[in-house]
């Protein structure tokens, strides 16, 4: 197996552990925003889509790439915007009782 692949596997495994550590601490209160936020992050595939759509590699690749760009951009833009909209609503109100 070549070194690049091994490095990639290392990165993957370590990132999974980081993910478990970080996300276990998120309270149920915020699970919906967590999900839509992490969902937007998975739209990172847009980076790959850009490279495919912009590469000079024939019409089929470009069209596939463009389709992927559309889907991933909806994912990224929609995901982050809707997460922000939700998080904006989470407020702690000052005590109003006398």
């Amino acid at each position: 197996m070549d070194a690049n692949l091994i490095t990639a596997v290392y990165i993957f495994v370590l990132a999974v552990f980081v993910g478990f550590e970080v996300i276990t601490k998120v309270p149920p209160l915020l699970h919906t925003p967590l999900m839509s936020g992490s969902n937007a992050i998975s739209g990172i595939t847009l980076v790959g889509a850009l490279l495919i759509a912009g590469g000079g590699d024939g019409m089929v690749a470009k069209l596939l790439g463009m389709l992927a760009v559309i889907c991933a951009t909806v994912n990224v833009v929609g995901g982050f915007m809707v997460t922000d909209r939700m998080l904006e609503m989470f407020k702690k109100k000052p005590e109003t009782r006398k």
Binding site: I11, F12, V13, A15, V16, F17, V18, G19, F20, V22, I23, L34, M35, S38, N39, I41, S42, I44, T45
Partner: peptide
């Protein structure tokens, strides 16, 4: 990395 984070989440 991002995929792994989201997968774990």
């Amino acid at each position: 990395i991002s995929g792994a984070l989201v997968g774990a989440s």
